[in-house]
Design a protein around this nucleic acid. Structure first.
Lengths: 383, 383
DNA sequence: CATACTTTGTTCGGTGAACGATCAAAATGC
DNA sequence: GCATTTTGATCGTTCACCGAACAAAGTATG
């Protein structure tokens, strides 16, 4: 409760009192408790506005650490954050997710202690919580992947228990695009209550933030827009249908099309390289893909009416070309009322969005009123 | 708080204590206050389970009334509900919304007192709140329509103030499909946290319930799916684009197509009539429209992942034919994970959904913790 | 049929958190 | 140097919630 307010808007006791409507005495008392338990620090004095200068409060960053883990199809990024959400250390390693949960999570298990040691040298930090983003649908309440197409061996694997046994902390698991959407919303587009995060890489996925919260849907498969039908082309898709967005506009599909015209392109990164080299065929392909994505997105914009759409993923490296196509299609087709404040922008956080978003997910859980109350009750003076 | 629990799950003091974790003494005290202020009634004793039989509590329905108003393009339905949400009286009148807010709301103003007198004869009821559903986008916080296409003269008209001045109660205004979605979710599909309500009438609209709450989006235009592009046909649409869902599959479009083949059909009701008469062309047209709707819906199902899709509106009168087409397209194209628990069902509430949903909106506001606390504080013993 | 047991709801002191008022601290401004 | 202003701390009061004991009203059991 107070912790939430301390993390942004009201940073002094008097401000908290004004914002919450509580008496100044009450606020003082509770802040003392939070300081005693190691949640909050008192730091510099703020400039006076005519009277006694207020003392600024901030979350105590030293001592604590939160892990944010971004697991991709072929890589794994482990990040360490302080409770304010600033990234202390990251490490990316190539890793095949198809090797199964023990192999992948075992790597995370070995990497984390190293990061904890390295991170910022001086004071040792204790791990408080872990957030994990994985490239497939997850039953959020249990943290278990459900029938993930590209994660063989992960079905119903109890990821939180894995970390709970080894580090003694809670782990939250979610779809990777969801945590990326969360990262962009919290860090870069906090004025947008409703936000979509489009990840355009080898495949295409979408993270949804509705009213400030991640929308996961009934089975945690919300945002799975890769197989929405688009346009007239009947490109066959590995899902069995044809004309899927992913079969038309994802990185893999673009690379295939460029191969057809004799260019050397295996994956998304080759498409990016070719565009950067100024290859006109590649530019045309990306722009065309942008239009296809925009066509689907225009429908989603009408339906969902977000303030902001963020485009990320490997292909956002060439967002000039990609977004041109997306905007063209969206602004051409969407309801004017929905588009007149709509912003379509490239990712501002970039390649660390997954790790940071997973961390934010864990931080917000650890600092939730219920968790803080529990910590205050169990008198365990943290740090 | 207690009011919410009283309206469904915990109907005796001991049950409330078990559900909330509060002490039995506290619950007793608070229930007494609610009884004293006229929110709750004590009624029959429930059967004993081996000890003293518990006394059942229920919301006090007599004395209070809530209005639910459903304004359509060419009709106006005014309903009166008790605080439990049961419909006491309804009245539908033909009315042209284009006559402007004063004319339409004036009609409501004259109708309400009559319903209040008629309703259930005996005890007089005082109006507590009003809910209004209108066929266009609304800025919910102020209750003002914004640029509604088929409501000339209503732009930014202060509807809540109109009723506030005349009846002295709060009025909540929302898009009609939103309140219909709410009615179906609360009354008929309460197990579905995420629900879509498709209204197929002259036009096509969609109400969204996400996590039990109406999703309105950034400008209150969420659910405006009538102009999503569908299929290969390039049917011109009044919005300026072509291939819009509404231009292909709405009641008006179906009637136009039937006219083209020489049948007599002016509006949605004629389509319904022809289908009921067994006209094969009409059946084919409805089924075809269902497929078009299903094609768009399959994308929305992938994106939003609802448990339930409810189909209502005038065309749901022939839902056998319509839903056949919808289901065919959705189950053919959507992500299996999203469809394996998905239910696509006809409206269970029917023509009163708008009035009931608007009433529910108002009731939930009036019984919200904040409002109840205020009522308890201001010592104004209701009734 | 009387008695023990169970479950519900009420009454009654005790406790603790929030409040309001007062006071000390540390600046600005005349 | 002194009034003013704003922040933060201290202290007694109030009020909501709790826990325990108790009354009420039934069922099980000898």
């Amino acid at each position: 409760m107070l912790a939430l307010i301390s993390s942004g808007v009201a940073v002094t006791r008097a401000e908290i009192a004004r914002h919450t409507g509580l008496a100044r005495s009450t606020v003082s008392h509770r802040v003392d408790a939070l300081i005693a338990h190691g949640f909050v620090d008192e730091d510099t004095e703020a400039p006076s506005t005519g009277g006694r200068p207020p003392r600024r409060l901030s979350l105590r960053t030293h001592g604590h650490a939160i892990a944010g883990v971004d697991i991709g199809a072929s890589h794994c990024r482990v990040g360490l954050l302080d409770v304010k959400g600033t990234l202390l250390a990251v490490r990316e390693d190539p890793l095949t997710i198809a090797d199964g949960p023990e192999a992948v999570l075992g790597h995370v298990e070995r990497t984390l202690p190293r990061l904890l040691k390295v991170a910022d040298g001086t004071a040792p930090r204790t791990l408080r919580a872990i957030g994990v983003g994985v490239p497939g649908p997850v039953e959020f309440s249990t943290g278990r992947p459900v029938d993930p197409p590209i994660m063989p061996g992960w079905h119903h694997y109890p990821v939180p228990e894995f970390f709970g046994e080894r580090f003694g902390v809670r782990a939250l698991v979610d779809n990777d695009v969801n945590v990326m959407a969360l990262a962009e919303q919290r860090r870069a587009f906090s004025d947008a209550l409703h936000l979509l995060y489009l990840k355009v890489g080898t495949g295409i996925g979408c993270g949804i933030v509705a009213d400030g919260h991640i929308h996961r849907g009934a089975q945690g498969s919300a945002g799975d827009i890769g197989h929405i039908r688009v346009g007239e082309r009947d490109e066959p898709c590995h899902c069995g249908n044809s004309g899927c967005l992913e079969a038309v506009a994802a990185g893999a599909a673009m690379a295939a099309r460029l191969r057809d015209v004799g260019l050397e392109a295996i994956g998304s990164l080759d498409v990016v390289r070719l565009v950067r080299e100024g290859n006109r065929e590649a530019v045309r392909t990306v722009r065309e893909a942008g239009r296809a994505i925009g066509e689907v997105l225009s429908g989603l914009v009408n339906f969902f009416n977000p303030e902001t759409v963020v485009v990320g993923g490997a292909l956002s490296a060439v967002h000039d070309q990609l977004l041109a196509g997306v905007r063209e299609a969206v602004y051409g087709r969407s309801n004017p009322l929905a588009t007149n404040v709509l912003r379509i922008e490239p990712s501002r956080i970039g390649e660390n969005a997954g790790a940071i978003g997973a961390g934010i997910l864990a931080i917000e859980h650890a600092l939730s009123p219920a968790q803080v109350d529990r910590a205050l009750a169990t008198d365990a003076t943290a740090v």
